[in-house]
Design a protein around this nucleic acid. Structure first.
Lengths: 136, 136
DNA sequence: ATGCGACTTGAAGCGCGGTTCAAGTCAAGT
DNA sequence: ACTTGACTTGAACCGCGCTTCAAGTCGCAT
């Protein structure tokens, strides 16, 4: 008789394939308190499908430069948590500053790609552009 | 008699103060081939002032997500180097994609800061926004 | 000549974000 | 009963970008 083992839950391999993350990464995230299996089949982790959304969020935040510790703090917070709001807002300003910095850098690169100075590093336009990247 | 020791050159401490980088970081960059002292006073490194510009460039590139190895490759390249142009252009596209990603993320954060969903992670607007960050 | 302070070296250590490995568990198929 | 294959664990290892440390070397002032 096949044990039903709750068809709704996902094996770690399944979650890995569908999230694009390595199983080792999922176990690592668990140690860091970012995710948790809903149950175990024997030793095996069984995840709720929503975990995939959570992982998408985690991946996104990590790509954005949040540390895993920051993300864990976010995930653990309640909406009534004023601190959370503040941190969100702070992070928004941070990300916004970074967007502006990267935009200037992109423009520098755009120029560098068509500039004929030798050596490139000495192009006055390029140097000015670089300096402006540093200012904020 | 005070040894003149070329007044134009800078001590590592001076470069550190003016660049905002730790002396240890400067020595580390040297090992990685990013910078080089123009001379030595005995054992002490003596840097040309232009090194400060180079360091500004390095810092900027590093902030932009280049690895030190990438930066070293850039710095070593000639302007006639087609590969360099290509890499510049590739990096520009990369940075541009990142700008768009971060812009969407910033907008998500902006929404999250005013959203009242409990838990926040379940806000449909937020989820949609997060999904859009992932797409490029 | 003695001490101070800023430098020198190589080697080791750290925080982050994981991966890799050895050894073991378990369910299902033959 | 035995193999296969996907999982389990803890511990070790990795690359990156540095920092820290111990031990030593200078130049300069007292």
């Amino acid at each position: 008789m096949a044990e039903v083992t709750d068809e709704a839950l996902l094996d770690i391999g399944e979650v890995a394939r569908r999230s694009g993350l390595a199983p080792s990464a999922l176990r690592f995230y668990e140690r860091k308190g970012l995710i948790e299996p809903a149950a175990r089949n024997g030793l095996r982790r069984a995840y709720q499908p929503e975990t995939l959304h959570r992982l998408a969020l985690i991946t996104c935040a990590r790509d954005a430069g949040f540390t895993l510790a920051e993300i864990a703090a976010f995930l653990g917070a309640r909406p009534s948590d004023t601190t959370l709001r503040e941190r969100m807002a702070a992070k928004e300003r941070e990300v916004d500053a970074r967007v502006r910095q990267l935009t200037r850098l992109r423009d520098s690169l755009r120029h560098a790609a068509v500039c004929d100075h030798d050596p490139l590093v000495e192009c006055p336009d390029f140097k000015r552009a670089i300096r402006s990247v540093g200012d904020s």
